[in-house]
């Protein structure tokens, strides 16, 4: 079980600061780690890496397709490249390059997609990936991670550096709510159980983990008790946790900062329908493109809120009771 923070407050460090510090720590021990950017190093916060390891920092310019291919070739020569771009350009724009140049030939490339979903905020629809998880899930053997806070991010960076293969990590580059306290433990492919309950289970990832914890409080006031999981690994999804909770609670809600098609909700539904069918309600973006606004406004606009999760949790329980 994850060790939660005593109090949920905004982190002292930005996610991009935490990332760069974690990557520099790994790079100090592993000379093969390299950084590749496509003209957003300033935005994604890799600047300190360029200063400390200038020979291992490559800013290609605005050419994501080439940058991904370059990473693949460098990894064929034994290097461990970390490529960064805004999520839309890190996945959708370069899907075939990731698929063929990296994954198809089993190369060792790490892709960081910044500003997933509504965290793209004022950059708006062109920069707001609601589909990156769906795209990346279709790539055989890809590992997909969405950390909820800097503690999980630190762990994920080390894991990606130490383990061979294609990784996609999506995260906000700004400050997030700190979910975990000291001593929290993580395992890729195994969800962190943050709270226990018997009525309904909420599986969330990224910024929706905090919303799920708040939803749990709303539900508790109504005498409804929810389990809450941080499903930080979207692929491979933690099937065991899903099946366990399907049997125990009999009602599930998923919550993601992504289209309800293709991402966490789909992954959980696939496990549930093939193993232990129970009602699943998916909270996420429904049939929409992104738009500009503050993150808070956009969460409300697209229904990515604790209130929405609580509402759908009750609906899931209602469906469960009707079946009996």
């Amino acid at each position: 079980m994850g060790v939660l923070a005593d109090k949920f407050v905004t982190d002292a460090v930005e996610m991009r600061q935490a990332y760069c510090a974690a990557l520099m720590k790994e790079a100090a021990e592993n000379a093969k780690i390299t950084v590749v950017d496509a003209d957003v190093s300033h935005s994604v916060g890799t600047g300190p890496f360029y200063e400390k390891f200038p020979d291992r920092s490559i800013n290609c310019g605005i050419m994501e397709a080439h940058a991904v291919g370059l990473c693949a070739g460098m990894s064929a020569m034994g290097l461990v490249p970390f490529f960064h771009a805004f999520g839309v350009f890190a996945t959708r724009r370069v899907f075939d390059q990731i698929f063929i140049s990296c994954a198809y030939q089993n190369l060792n490339v790490k892709i960081i997609g910044a500003d997933p979903g509504v965290t793209a905020a004022t950059n708006g629809g062109t920069h707001m990936p609601f589909e990156d998880l769906g795209l990346m899930r279709l790539i055989p053997n890809a590992t997909i991670v969405e950390p909820a806070d800097s503690s999980m991010y630190n762990f994920a960076v080390k894991f990606m550096a130490d383990n061979y293969g294609l990784f996609y990590l999506r995260t906000s580059r700004r400050k997030t709510v700190k979910i975990y306290g000291d001593g929290a433990r993580f395992e890729i492919g195994r969800a962190n159980k943050l709270a226990d309950g018997d009525d309904v289970c909420i599986f969330a990832c990224g910024i929706m983990v905090y919303e799920a914890l708040k939803a749990r409080e709303l539900l508790a006031k109504k005498g409804v008790f929810a389990s809450v999981y941080d499903m930080h690994t979207i692929k491979p999804v933690d099937s065991a946790a899903v099946i366990y909770e399907a049997k125990k609670c009999g009602a599930i809600v998923t919550a993601e900062n992504h289209n309800v098609i293709g991402g966490l909700g789909s992954a959980v539904c696939e496990v549930v329908s093939e193993n232990y069918p129970v009602p699943v309600e998916r909270v996420g973006v429904e049939e929409s493109f992104g738009e500009v606004g503050s993150q808070e406004y956009l969460q409300s606009r697209f229904g990515l809120t604790a209130e929405k999760i609580a509402e759908r949790a009750l609906k899931s329980i209602e469906r469960k009771l009707k079946r009996k």
Binding site: D55, R56, A67, G69, L70, A72, G73, A76, M77, I100
Partner: peptide, 17 residues
């Protein structure tokens, strides 16, 4: 259209290493 980037990656990897 993808081979040249891969080749550049291998070549640049040789230089870096």
């Amino acid at each position: 259209g993808q081979g040249l980037s891969l080749a550049a990656g291998v070549a640049y990897g040789k230089i870096l290493r």
